[in-house]
Design a protein around this nucleic acid. Structure first.
Lengths: 181, 181
DNA sequence: TTTGGCATGTAAGCCGTTACATGATTTA
DNA sequence: TAAATCATGTAACGGCTTACATGCCAAA
């Protein structure tokens, strides 16, 4: 297996927190999880169907407006058990980052290669944007004290992502500056 | 496409530096690139065959011992052009890290969940091991001044990996310590 | 002489992306 | 009323992993 169907457990974990429709799950990936995990709706909907067939989740439909149906899923008892079992399993070995910037850099043998400054500029730019987005999310979600208590895991990984981006930007800028000497 | 066949260009980039057999490429992934990119030999050998069919690389066989044949590949002129074109292309959007630790953490809503300390311990342990390995590699490869001039990209990404591990360990230990209050 | 590493290949199957497909609702 | 978003599905395909398969070489 390419990665042991982690998506299945992520969906279960999301539904353990609250009822969600497929579209909501997709939005969670886009808005607050994209750095770490992402799935297209074409992967989410079939997975939801399988989970329901296997009895790990259950659904009911609600009307949005007059005709549009939205299918909400909740986790069942057996789904909860499956999720717990996975949460308690030891972590699988980490997967490679498959980061294109790093790979291109690796293939350059000299600091004088004219590709280097462009590569760094591009990467710096991308990480500046990402850092800004993450910091805006932090302001939005965890600015006030109360919110910091709830959603422990979400707060944790957002903070970690911000630190990671800052450290990476620092290193990138340092290395970029060193090119000119 | 899942990721636009980056492997193809990584192989070309490796061969642009020096002649290599499939087995050598596999070893490079295992020994000095595993954090960032990895491919099994079952993916490498067919890719080499395709690249040769398309004229981007050429091969010759050498004998190891008396019977065992080793097939060395070098990059051709047209392969060099293909590689250069890819190196100059803008970077593709970053792919999610798909890190299991982060996902499990995200799904935990309270710092008091008994899973949290175990999860952190496990992750700390893994990153300690990785940091040690990376630092040993640095000593081995770039300890003396001369080596630091060559293989610019390789030195860069190894340094970055070490910094990344240090930062992550620092954050993990901090968060782990905060659990006890 | 046996074990582990060197060396190369193929096949099956899952994960994830892109594209195809449809229609309702909200907002500018 | 047009465009963007909401909402749900299926199909085709490529990348990657796991397993199958074979045989040679060096070192303990």
């Amino acid at each position: 297996m390419a990665q042991k169907n982690v998506l299945k457990y992520i969906i279960l974990g999301m539904l353990a927190h609250r009822e969600l429709a497929g579209y909501d799950i997709k939005k969670l990936f886009e808005e607050e999880l994209g750095d770490f995990w992402y799935s297209n709706h074409s992967q989410i909907y079939p997975e939801l169907r399988r989970l329901e067939e296997d009895g790990f989740i259950a659904s009911h439909t609600e009307l949005v407006g007059k005709k549009l149906e939205k299918k909400f899923y909740r986790i069942t008892e057996s789904g909860q058990q499956l999720l717990s079992a996975w949460m308690e399993e030891p972590l699988n070995p980490p997967v490679p980052t498959r980061d294109e910037f790093t790979m291109k850099l690796y293939l350059i043998n000299s600091a004088k290669d004219p590709l280097v400054p462009r590569l760094f500029q591009e990467e710096i730019c991308r990480h500046e944007e990402k850092l800004q987005y993450l910091q805006a999310r932090w302001q939005l979600l965890f600015a006030d004290e109360a919110a910091r208590q709830e959603h422990y895991g979400h707060r944790c990984i957002l903070q970690q992502a911000i630190l990671r981006e800052k450290q990476r930007l620092e290193w990138l800028r340092q290395e970029y500056a060193a090119l000119k000497q």
